[in-house]
Structure formats: structure tokens, C-alpha cells
Design a protein around this nucleic acid. Structure first.
Lengths: 217, 217
DNA sequence: CTTGTTTTGTACCAGACGGTTAAAATACGT
DNA sequence: ACGTATTTTAACCGTCTGGTACAAAACAAG
């Protein structure tokens, strides 16, 4: 029984590549955790998604919790990196804000796995994220963008005064996040009208309009 | 050891009360599931929170999944029931809308367990909710309120035309829900400024203001 | 009291699951 | 070439956990 697979599986000239192995594990773990949660995520299933063995997971990540931490940090890193390409500096404040919101909304839509990981981390109380200064730092730039927009908006009079950049970020996040996180229950109850492709575009643009109305001077 | 509790626990004239037992289980299960998720929720722990035995859970609810379904339906029922007391019919549309939002926001804050259950159901794909016509029906009244507000607002010219009641409900939900669901990660990253008591009131009222600005004619 | 049905207590299990042991294979400095 | 540290394989394990078998109480009906 065991003989069948023993010989042919491993080639002679196979090069070792620890970094690659870790990336492989991380990717598989992301899939599994995003699909099934932390407690529902199965190490064995992660192994099957991987070219390596169970032992490797524990070798590189210690335990399930350590793997979760790595997955979460990796997710934040890659998602926030995508935001860096956004350049709003030379747009008028209101246009910059609209563009930022539209981007954020779409960005959340593109990163369903990330949303699910954050949902799961929230259910777990956020204690992993709380002890990760790395993740905290990754999030500063987004708010910095809004601080800039608010500053310029106050200066040229296009935005009403007293706006809080952090709260603005909270609002963009809330709308964009909820759109993904509660899709299942919301469209389960009220139908998929807001969540099919056309509905999403309509919703997004309508929200953008409302946002502008809410903040302009 | 076992003798200590045996005799005094059950009186001779003790009446059986199946309904009470089920309620007891449901309450304990709600605690456990809300705290630890579905997969993280432990039947044995639920038993310990209960005056009954593990056998009873399976007797009344079949299996863990059945228990989850019962918990979710129970939660929706009681939470939506609380909303019924709200009377907006004789308020001007804009005031009614503000009051509805403030209520919704506070209501979500008061029902942290419910929020967590909905989060969990969403992570699980919402398949339980999808097959529950009961829950679907429970949610109609909220949207009906908004339909009424929009109708009256269009009639007296206080609301701008073209507003979608369902989208409005989506927005109120998004802000109120996100406020609870992502508290851990958001305040973990950006500090608790928006989530302490004073911050919450400020946030709520500020959002209400923005909402009014966004929808008035 | 007898009989049938509902409700409950006790003890138990099979499988799943996270994690480990021990050693072999490979890379690498000297 | 050789010794040492790193990386990988394969088999294994203790415990936890959802779920059950069995039958005794409690109750209702006749």
C-alpha cells in the first residue's frame, strides 16, 4: 500500500526553496481560513492544498494560531499595498473624495477573501491584530489621504469645516465593508437586487453622490 | 460528591416544563455561539450553562446545526420585535428618518449578541437564513417604515425624489452594523476614540446629520 | 392499576483534529 | 570531504467532541 507512492513522488534534482514553501502554505491557509473560519479551518485540508506536508506548517508557523497570524498580516500587507497606487494629490477635494470612495468600494469587492478574514478576526475579538504593530502601521496612509483632502477642502472652501478624517475613513469603510460582509444575509432577506452587477454599480454611485452631498460646504 | 447536589436539586413535586427547558437551552446556546462562533461553540459548554443535560439538546434540536437554526430564528424574532414599538407615522419625514437612524444605531449597540450571530451566519454563507421564510418575513416591517417616509417625503417635498427605501435601509444597517461588527479591528488599528461612550454619541449624531444632508431636497 | 407516550439521566463511542517524534535528506561553511 | 545546521518525510498519538444506545422516570389516558 505504502509502496505505491513512495518511489515516483520525489525527483532527484529537486531544489529546496523555503520561501516558496512558506508562500505556498500561506496561500493555501488563506483559502481555507477564508472559506471555513478559524475554528472551521482544517490543517489537513490546508496540507492537501499544498505541495508540502503538515509538518512544514508547524515548522514554519508554530501552531494554528501562528499560521492565522501570518495569514492575516499577509492579507493586510497585500491589500494595503494595492491602495498605494492611488494618487489623489492633484484632484480637487470633492473629486478626490469621490474617487477614493469609489476605489474603496470596488477594492473591497475585489478582495472578498480579505473581508472574510477581517470578519473572522473580529469575531475572535481582534486580539491577533491588536498585538501586531505591523498591521497598525499599514493603515496609516489611508487616513493620511483623507487628512490631506480635508485640509485642502477646508482651505479652498469646498468642504464644510469640522469634518473628521478618521470618521470619514470609518464611513467609507463601513459602507464598503458591509456591502461584502453582509451580502449573504441581506440579499437572502431582501433579494439580490442591490448585489447583482448592475445593482452594485448603481449602489456605489448613489452612495458616492450622497457622500458628496453630506460633506460639501 | 454527587450526593451533595442530588437530593436538594429536585423536589418531589417538580413539574416538567419542556418549553422552559427549550428556552433555557436556547439562551445558553445563544451565549455560547455568540461568544465562540458556530465551529468554536461547544455543546458541552452549552450544557454547563444549562440546567439540563446534553441529551436534551439533541432531543429537542436534533443536532448542532438545528440548534444553530433555532438560535438564529429566536434572535431575529426578539430583536425585530423590539423595533415594533417605534412609531414614526406622525413625525415629519426628515425627523422620522433621523429618529429611525438613531434608534437603529442604538438598537444595534444594545444587541451585541445578535450582531455576532449575524456575522457568523454570514461567514457560514447564510444558508440557514436562506431557507427560513420566517426570518424573511420578520424584516419586512422595517423597510415598510422607510417606504412610508419616502412616500410622505416625496409628497411634501422635504425629501429629494428618486430615493430607494431599500437602499436607505441598507445604509442605516451598514453604518449601524459595521459600528458593532468591526469594533475590534477598527479600534485596534485606529484607537478607541470613535468607540468610547462619548465618541459613539458624537459619531451617531454626526452620521445622522450627514444622512439628513444627503437625502433632503 | 395498566398501558402507551413523552421527557430525562447515564454512560459511552467512533472519528476527527491539532500537534509531535524521530530520523532522513539536503544545503553550507571550512 | 566532512561536520553542522537547516529543511523535509512519514508514521503516530492523546484528547476533544458531536452524537448515540439504553432504559428509567414522569406523565396522560382508560
Amino acid at each position: 500500500m505504502t509502496d505505491q507512492e513512495k518511489a515516483p513522488a520525489k525527483r532527484a534534482g529537486w531544489k529546496r526553496d523555503p520561501a516558496k514553501v512558506q508562500q505556498d502554505i500561506l496561500q493555501a491557509a488563506t483559502r481555507e481560513f477564508a472559506d471555513n473560519g478559524f475554528n472551521g479551518g482544517r490543517i489537513e485540508r490546508i496540507v492537501q492544498l499544498t505541495a508540502t506536508s503538515k509538518r512544514m506548517i508547524y515548522y514554519y508557523f508554530g501552531d494554528k494560531e501562528g499560521l492565522w497570524r501570518a495569514v492575516l498580516e499577509d492579507a493586510y500587507t497585500s491589500v494595503r499595498a494595492q491602495e498605494a497606487e492611488l494618487d489623489l494629490a492633484d484632484l480637487p477635494p470633492l473629486e478626490a473624495l469621490r474617487k477614493l470612495f469609489v476605489f474603496t468600494f470596488d477594492h473591497h469587492r475585489r478582495n472578498a477573501d480579505f473581508i472574510r478574514l477581517v470578519m473572522i478576526e473580529n469575531i475572535r475579538g481582534g486580539h491577533v491584530l491588536a498585538s501586531s504593530t505591523k498591521i497598525r502601521d499599514l493603515n496609516r496612509p489611508v487616513v493620511a489621504m483623507l487628512e490631506d483632502i480635508c485640509r485642502r477642502g477646508a482651505a479652498d472652501g469646498s468642504l464644510r469645516p469640522g469634518l473628521c478624517p478618521l470618521q470619514l475613513h470609518w464611513e467609507l469603510s463601513a459602507l464598503s465593508f458591509f456591502n461584502m460582509s453582509n451580502r449573504a444575509t441581506f440579499s437572502g432577506i431582501f433579494g439580490a437586487g442591490l448585489h447583482d452587477e448592475a445593482g452594485q454599480v448603481r449602489l456605489r454611485d448613489s452612495l458616492a453622490d450622497q457622500l458628496i452631498r453630506a460633506v460639501r460646504a
